[in-house]
Design a protein around this nucleic acid. Sequence first.
DNA 1: CTGTTAGCGCATTCAT
DNA 2: ATGAATGCGCTAACAG
Lengths: 327, 327
Amino acid sequence: MREIALSVGVAPITVSRALKKPSSVSPETRRRILQAIEEVGFIPNQLASSMRGAGRIIGTVVPPLINSGIAEQVQGMSDECRERGYQLLLMQGDFSPEAEDEAIRALLGWRPAGLILQAFVQGPVAREMLRETGVPVVEISEIRGNEPIDMAVGVSNFDAAHAMTAHLAAKGYRCIGFVSTPIHGNDRLRQRRIGYRQAMADLGLSPVPELEVEVDITPQGGAEALRILTARNPRLDVIFCSSDTLAIGAVQECHRLGWKVPGRLAIAGYGDVDLAAQLHPTLTTVRVRRYDMGRRAVRQLLRRLEGDAPTQAIVAVGFEIIERESA
Amino acid sequence: MREIALSVGVAPITVSRALKKPSSVSPETRRRILQAIEEVGFIPNQLASSMRGAGRIIGTVVPPLINSGIAEQVQGMSDECRERGYQLLLMQGDFSPEAEDEAIRALLGWRPAGLILQAFVQGPVAREMLRETGVPVVEISEIRGNEPIDMAVGVSNFDAAHAMTAHLAAKGYRCIGFVSTPIHGNDRLRQRRIGYRQAMADLGLSPVPELEVEVDITPQGGAEALRILTARNPRLDVIFCSSDTLAIGAVQECHRLGWKVPGRLAIAGYGDVDLAAQLHPTLTTVRVRRYDMGRRAVRQLLRRLEGDAPTQAIVAVGFEIIERESA
DNA sequence: CTGTTAGCGCATTCAT
DNA sequence: ATGAATGCGCTAACAG
């Protein structure tokens, strides 16, 4: 930068200004500076820049990209970051609580402008670090019944499951089964089940345990669930699966049994994986806009940083019921 | 850091050393320093560190994560980076050559220790920038017939397609069709077709144009290809599709026609998408180890940086023929 | 509109 | 084994 300044005959700070606040430099000077930069092929050092001014890095911790819609979400974050001139520093993996602490610590080392975390931070160590440093944080997750450290973006799995159940009822199905993978400590799954139950109650259809099963998160699990539920209740007319993987397995099982879908039994999923639109029959499912979630998370962060509006802490992202052939 | 130094009663530089070269500080001093760091919750500033010493950022430019195996590859890079104490700065998107220049310029601004690029850099501007700055670069792509800027990691699509074709022949198939999406300027696809042709020639089966089609990259394309090829040549006994998407479409079309797979017609794909193992029949395909490619790319870079061994410029990553039910 | 001064937090170099 | 001085490249704050 000094070089450029010398060659143009100005002070280094003027070069800096020509790049950051073009309006504060005379057009003529600016032109000559930009030209010199072009000629020399100068690329400003962001590290140095971030040490003085505001950092332009956004750090993020996400589960394995191979899974689910995480890739889509990261893409959303990345796109939004690029458009706004920020860079995405990615920490990705299957983190234990301690490993998560490490990951967050590593990111904080880069003095990021903000962090975006997938799922709510569990460890007290990490929560403490985040509080102390005061970095803006957006957590992306189920937004019902959680207390964000700072801000949150997410979807209400409750609402989504409720809506799908209501949708199925509206289509005339009455005996609605619900299949999920082991709920264990998983918020999202729990909310889906509660949403389903609430919808059943709201509709005057009693939500009996007999209509629910938990199985492995594999297509085989879906097939198994189908066998269990139909054995328990022959009048079952639709199965709502808490993940597309299960739904796909259930559909395959119907093929094996020679049952028409949705003629003999209807099936709905959750997630809208790629495959959902390609199978026969195509799968009715719930689509969560993960790409949007990623973009929103970044925007949420930047709104805080650039201090435009008073930021609302929690942003709900929508979902859609995708009606296809299977239900 | 100054704070820590004060509280322990040493000079800042000693704190620095306690972290970077523990061996150069007396055990006792080190212990007290680390303890102070722990208490205060101090996290060293990587920006400042990278300005003086060697950077610990690895920048990467990749196509949309939603596609194909890119997510898997990024996961490989990320894992390797984490283990080695580097951070991954991600630029992701659908770049035009000019946008690619921009992306690379943005990354260079962070003075990364190295760059990993998906596909060979096309634009002369970017090539020039990279040459000038002298950053180590690993390009991940088809490695046959390309000149890397610096280093490359990749797979030979030629070898993979050749191997699959030979595999099909070994299984007794003689009339082997080849379906691809428009080859246009796509190296990888071209190499697959050449590999197929070469294998046919090597086997003494004449590679005639009649056995090849180009269709859209959709399941519908696969179905169409099937109709075209079987109409041209009723004795066709297997179709090798240059992507799993096409193969899946072809399999579905067989179901529609009531043809047994592989009884009436066998089908093979390329890519081993998740779905390949779940469909009926399960799909025989080519699996490229993208996760490994990601890890290798990082290792390649670090070997150069840490200057152990004389680095070989091009690393070939293996592939596997995954034999399942469909062929 | 432009320049001067100072310092961000660390690590390299040279001393002790 | 430890420390002092110095500077990485940039920009905030304050002149002019």
